[in-house]
Amino acid sequence: MSELTREQVTGEEPSDKIVIYWEREYSTALVPERLKLDFMPHRPLLSGMSLNEQRTVAVEGYKVIPDDCGPVRMVGQYGWLIRSPVDCKIRRTAEGVKWQAPPILPEERVLGYKSFSGTYVDSILNSGYPKLCCGIRFYYPKHVGLMMKDVPNHFYHYPERTFVVWEGMKTQEYKRTPNRYDWLTDYDAFTANFLLQLTKPTTIKRGDPIGIVVPVLLPKQFTLEELKPRE
């Protein structure tokens, strides 16, 4: 049985830490990594300037770009990046989705799993949407969810990319992937396979960024209320 690797989400106190585990389904899978999108590090940050300093750089021709927005920079460093384990080509035709992708060989199936097609690309119930099997299985506590998202602001960081990711959230109701570990009580599992929407015929190389996995609260854990002034 393979050894699980820990990923932590840190809260304000040590007791608030949520531990998420991962393991490879395929030996070809690449290690999930903390998302860290490249920005322009030598640009002056407006957030650290006084209003007069901001006016000065504006007069000098400073052009504001998304890098200058603190929330944009933050989202570019949040979550775990999942990369493609193989080279593949995918395109849409009148007959449906077609692809060229290597088979998942028996010796690569660490957990014994393979796709319905037998390759690293599959489709869901003849939906016409290709699914890229990235070969990473996550184990997460039942009181949180894991959201599968596109790379944030991919139009800015990867403007030549010819696909987008269908985003979804895995919760405890999703029980298709078995939890193989008795000691991981109150944990559920899922495999990071990404459903893609093609905009053009697409070539994906091994190591290309596909999407991210982000821990989220469940809807029952929060509510939205209007703030009204106290009388």
Rank of each mutant, 00 (worst) to 15 (best):
Pro41Asp: 05
Ile90Ser: 12
Ser123Asn: 13
Glu95Phe: 02
Pro229Trp: 03
Arg176Phe: 00
Lys149Ser: 14
Cys134Leu: 04
Leu81Asn: 04
Arg230Asn: 10
Glu167Ser: 13
Ile136Pro: 07
Glu7Val: 15
Glu226His: 06
Tyr156Leu: 15
Ser117Met: 03
Arg91Trp: 14
Asp87Ser: 12
Phe222Gln: 07
Ser84Asp: 09
Lys170Trp: 08
Ser115Pro: 01
Val151Arg: 07
Arg91Cys: 14
Leu184Met: 12
Gly70Pro: 12
Gln77Lys: 15
Glu226Thr: 11
Lys131Thr: 15
Gly96Glu: 10
Thr56Asp: 01
Asp67Tyr: 14
Lys200Met: 08
Arg180Val: 01
Phe39Pro: 02
Gly76Cys: 04
Pro141Ala: 05
Glu108Val: 01
Thr202Ala: 11
Asn153Phe: 14
Val59Ile: 09
Met147Gly: 12
Lys228Pro: 00
Ser84Val: 05
Gly145Asp: 08
Arg91His: 12
Asn153Ala: 10
Tyr139Ser: 02
Asp182Ala: 15
Gly145Phe: 07
Leu35Lys: 04
Trp166Tyr: 13
Ile90Gln: 11
Thr223Pro: 01
Pro102Cys: 10
Phe194Arg: 06
Gly48Val: 01
Arg24Asp: 06
Tyr78Gly: 03
Leu35Tyr: 02
His143Gly: 09
Tyr21Gly: 03
Met49Pro: 01
Glu108Ile: 02
Pro41His: 08
Gly207Ser: 06
Ser50Pro: 09
Pro152Ser: 03
Arg34Trp: 04
Asn179Lys: 04
Leu81Ile: 07
Ser2Pro: 12
Lys131Ile: 15
Pro178His: 02
Gly168Val: 05
Tyr174Phe: 14
Asp38Trp: 04
Gln172Thr: 08
Thr177Glu: 12
Pro66Ala: 11
Gly118Pro: 11
Leu81Thr: 04
Lys200Ala: 15
Leu227Lys: 11
Gly207Ile: 03
Gly112Met: 04
Tyr158His: 08
Arg206Ala: 15
Pro85Ser: 09
Gly207Cys: 07
Lys114Thr: 15
Cys133Pro: 01
Ile18Cys: 09
Val121Phe: 12
Leu195Gly: 08
His143Thr: 14
Asn52Leu: 11
Glu12Gln: 04
Val144Asp: 05
Pro159Val: 05
Asp150Val: 02
Ile90Cys: 11
Leu51Cys: 01
Val144Trp: 10
Arg161Ser: 12
Pro201Tyr: 06
Gly112Ala: 08
Pro201Cys: 07
Leu227Gln: 11
